[in-house]
Simulated assay, not measured.
Amino acid sequence: MPPLTLAHQHLPGVIVIAVTGEMDATNRAQLETYLRKSRTDPSERLVFDLSRVPFMDSSGLHVLLTCFTDCLRNGGAVHLAGVQPLPARLFEITGVVAHIPVHDTVEDAITAALTSERSI
């Protein structure tokens, strides 16, 4: 299995976090550590580019949900982009799609994140 690769870009009003590789129990800690280091403000709007994530298990999902909850609690937002078929099925089965916006492209997710109302 290829290693998880993470990168982020701070744009005005949003951080785009690009994830490459499988998100599972073997790299959960790596993802959590990366998110703690790359986020500077808990009220940020985040876009996760998942276009290069072919597989995600419940560990990866848990990290995304924890991040979503933290952002929501602090007035931020999380948007997902480019979700591949297997992770999309996981989001559908678990009901995540009812709570976290999913977009076809990173550009669509950025636009939505910047135009959405901040949570209170």
Rank of each mutant, 00 (worst) to 15 (best):
T33C: 13
T105H: 11
A77S: 13
R28Q: 10
S38A: 14
A77H: 02
V106A: 12
R89M: 02
L90I: 05
P3Q: 07
V63E: 05
D70M: 15
Q30E: 10
A25I: 10
D108K: 15
P3V: 01
A7N: 11
Q84F: 03
T40N: 14
L4H: 03
L4W: 02
T40D: 13
E44R: 13
L61H: 08
L64Y: 00
M56S: 02
L80Q: 01
I15V: 12
L35T: 01
Q30T: 07
L6Y: 03
V97Q: 09
H10T: 09
A113D: 01
A77P: 00
P12E: 09
C71D: 05
I110M: 09
K37W: 10
I100L: 07
A25G: 08
F55S: 08
D49Y: 13
G95H: 01
A25S: 10
R36L: 12
H62N: 08
H8A: 06
L50K: 06
H79S: 11
I17R: 05
I120S: 15
P85M: 07
E92K: 15
T26S: 12
G75S: 01
A113V: 02
V16A: 07
T5A: 14
L6V: 10
G60W: 05
L31R: 01
Y34E: 08
C71G: 06
P42L: 06
V83K: 06
L90W: 05
T111D: 09
V47F: 05
R28H: 02
P42T: 00
I110E: 01
I93Q: 10
M23R: 05
D57E: 02
T115I: 05
I100T: 00
L4Y: 06
N74I: 00
S59D: 01
C67H: 09
A112S: 12
S59Y: 08
N27K: 11
L114A: 10
D57W: 12
F55W: 10
R45F: 03
E117P: 14
G75W: 02
A88F: 04
T20W: 04
M56R: 07
G21W: 08
Y34R: 03
L86Y: 06
Q84E: 05
F55T: 04
I17T: 12
L4A: 09
D104C: 13
Q9V: 14
H8N: 12
L72Y: 10
L114I: 07
I100R: 01
V106W: 12
N74K: 02
A112Y: 01
T5S: 15
N27D: 09
H79P: 02
S59I: 00
H10C: 14
H62E: 11
L46E: 01
S119A: 14
L11A: 11
R45C: 08
D49K: 11
S38Q: 13
V102Q: 04
L90F: 05
E32S: 12
H8K: 07
V53H: 09
